[in-house]
Design a binder for these strands. Sequence first.
RNA 1: GCGAACGUAGCUCAGCUGGUAGAGCAGCGGUUUGUGGUUCCGCUGGUCGUGGGUUCAAGCCCCAUCGUUCGCCCCA
Length: 421
Amino acid sequence: MIQSPRGTKDILPSTINAWQQLEDTFRRVSTLFGYQEIRTPIFENTEVFMRTIGENTDVVGKEMYTFPDKGGDSMTLRPEMTASVARAVVQHNLTATNPLQRLWYVGEFFRYERPQKGRYRQFHQFGAECIGSAAPEADVEVILLVAKLLSDIGLKEFSLEINTLANREVRILYREKLVEYLIEQKSSLSPESQERLDKNPLRVLDSKHPLDRVAIESAPTILEYLDDESALHFATVQNLLTIAGINFTISPRLVRGLDYYSHTVFEFVSTALGAQSALGGGGRYNDMFEEFGGKHTPAVGFAMGIERILMILEQTNPTLYKQNTPDVMMITLENESYPFSQTIAQLLRNDGISTVMDVQGRSLKAQMREADRLGAAITIIIGENERTSGQLTVKNMKTGMQETATQENIIEIVQKMLRLS
RNA sequence: GCGAACGUAGCUCAGCUGGUAGAGCAGCGGUUUGUGGUUCCGCUGGUCGUGGGUUCAAGCCCCAUCGUUCGCCCCA
């Protein structure tokens, strides 16, 4: 048997309703905040991600789906969206007509790694980017959007963690200080972290390895090195969040895995998940647009993993998974009645009443059972009697009560019955 | 990429120290012939993940492979 590739999943009709409802919420909340949808290609020139995400990050180092196309160019299935959005904004010079771009997206992404719960090779993210503002108000706007989204989705068990990675000068200075400190402790660090010392020292702070815990606890934090600009930016973010009534904690060790962040970074963490606890996160990236030949454009954005959201909702909100049910099922008793049955079905459908009918020539009992299984609110029985007399039998499946109707008033009768049930 | 566990009917699982497979649910049909969801009865459905090997004999033992799960790494 041919199976779907490792780390990929079919989304079947039994769960599609939850996906559609989530997508509706994404669209609605994004629109509430004035964000507009953007769609970009599923693959890009590999360079798009190499430049922005950082060559020493795991995403680029070992997780990208990269392949040569037939012309010999290196292509990569997108592992995230921010780089693609930045590329598109520069390519179409969107900021020329409106220097502030509020954009959102939802789609599939690809990372080549070992699948486990809540982590797949093809996965789905929702995200938003606020492009063109360096102000802390933009950072907060994005966080408020996420918070509104989570609460509208019905997710309660999460917390917000924030940190600042400051501006470039501070970050470089801090990185030096941190490396100085860590080198003293090098022998007691985990092998992974010893490796990170050269490549991505900030990531050591985020290590969960027990060996690193002691060193991390007493490591200098970036908060001790903030200059006036960075400190003011971070303070304003905190102030605005507080005014908005958003609870948060400051985690000086939150650094995110990608190279492009500066100033505010944040993560929404589920308290209901295991190892894959991060629901979504984001931060400010002020230096990405130059990479694509655009002018300096400060921006802030975030992304959240849909599979993880669904994992939680599956337990807390099972009604999300309810499948769509038809309003009416036509029960057709013999071959001669099918044309009449079909005529009635079309009549109902043209009035916006979802209607199914038997297409297998099954028995009355079987058709009734199917109507029940599909959750049809109403059945309309058509046999020889109805066909010759023009009197239709309309049954309310919940109460079991039956009425008769004619072709002329059938819509009226069905509408009334639907309103009552 | 590393470590561990697990793959038997559509689903959840049983299957003794190796003797060519079973239950519940679901599906289909029936219960006096035009009424579902509850009872009762019957039926369909599996090259036991796949490919090798050991054996008179493999769902069970061995090897490989694919997949899943849980960790590590990292992240959504």
